[in-house]
Amino acid sequence: MKGSMNQYATPATGVMEAAESIASALGAESAAPVLDPSEALRAVLFNLGLGPECEVLVPAFGKHTPGPEVCGVGARPSYVDVGKDIVLNRDNLTRKLEAEYRRENGKWVHRRRGLTLRGIVMTHPFGFAPFLDEVEEFAEEHGLILVDDARGALGSQVWSNSRSAWISAGAGGVAGVASFNGSAFVISSDPELVRIVSAKLRDPREEGLSSEALRDLRISAMRTRRRLREALVSEGLGAVPETPNYCQTACHEVILVAKGERDEAAERLKEAGFIVETDFWPWTVMNSPDRQYGYRKGRCPESEELSRKAIAVRMR
């Protein structure tokens, strides 16, 4: 589970150029383009101190989870069974904490492994997102560092009651990353953290970003998702969960939960001209003999069942 630390160490030199237009478009204090969002997420985790000898809560379900990135900096991912909720919330986080951790000297320590819990990484799968205020409050109440993994969700927004504003995916918590279709950014309220991460991973293309472009992406996604939902409901192959009203998504695909055999439903959708994907966590790793990325079969039964039935669907 240990990763190479040198590549994420704080650089002694290097100054990041100002990126006011990008930060403004994302509604963040500081942001910068990066080449690889997964590498950027690892760098964010490491520079926030979420490395060896600690645990980080991550959702068990999704096209990807932050588990590999947490492992990549030497920490241990602790998978939360999100199930039908799809994303993290106060209820499933509380169940996880009460079931597996104890309070010791002001910290949360795993009852069996003895490692200290230090952080949470939330995600934005299929146009869904956690209710940001709720997860931020949970993290603050329990002394945990919150990181926002918005890979694939650039342009999406989540409403915050505490701020009375829409918050860009990737801009929640202490720091995060957001990406879509080849563009990726590291985002934080801490300009120094953005400088450190982008010094090693900065995208040399120096691409810009505008609030108008992100708005157009959300409008396009809304129209596409509406057409997809209508088409999938008419096919009658399963349920299409509604996106929460506190989300404005830029995701152009939806999730279908097959009511029968998933492979049969996926084939019918392909024949109808849709693009489908069926590889989801934890289904893709739970049968691994070496417990890949720290996941153990049976640990998150609701997420396992959902990953066995889910189909990501998008237009050609």
Rank of each mutant, 00 (worst) to 15 (best):
D148E: 07
T116C: 10
E136A: 07
V147W: 01
V158M: 06
G119D: 04
A129P: 01
D148Q: 06
A139G: 08
L144E: 06
F126E: 14
E134I: 00
F131T: 00
E134L: 03
V121Q: 01
S160P: 01
H142E: 09
A129C: 13
S160K: 02
M122K: 08
R118T: 11
A153H: 08
I120E: 00
V135W: 00
R163E: 12
E140F: 06
E140C: 01
M122Y: 10
M122Q: 14
E141A: 15
V147F: 01
F138H: 03
R151F: 10
M122L: 14
D148A: 04
L146W: 07
G143L: 11
G155Q: 08
A129T: 06
G127E: 09
V147I: 14
S164N: 14
F128Y: 13
A139S: 13
P125R: 10
A150I: 04
D148Y: 12
W166S: 12
E137N: 13
G143Q: 11
H124S: 04
L154Y: 07
P130D: 05
L132W: 00
T116A: 13
S160N: 07
V147P: 02
I120V: 15
E137P: 02
G152Y: 05
S162P: 03
W166V: 15
H124T: 07
F128D: 02
F131Y: 15
G152A: 12
A153K: 04
R118I: 07
I120Y: 03
L144I: 11
I167K: 03
Q157M: 14
R118W: 05
A153V: 08
S160F: 06
H142C: 07
L144R: 04
Q157L: 15
H142P: 08
L144N: 09
E140D: 14
D149L: 09
Q157K: 15
A150V: 06
P130E: 09
F138I: 00
I120M: 03
V158N: 02
V135F: 02
L144W: 04
G143D: 13
S162V: 02
W159Q: 04
H142D: 06
F126L: 13
T123R: 10
W166A: 11
S156C: 11
L154W: 07
H124R: 08
R163G: 00
L132M: 05
I120G: 01
A165E: 15
F126K: 09
A129S: 14
L146C: 07
E140A: 14
W159H: 08
G152F: 08
F128H: 09
E134W: 03
A139L: 05
L132F: 00
E137S: 11
L144Y: 09
R118Q: 13
G155E: 11
R151P: 10
S160I: 04
L132I: 04
D148L: 06
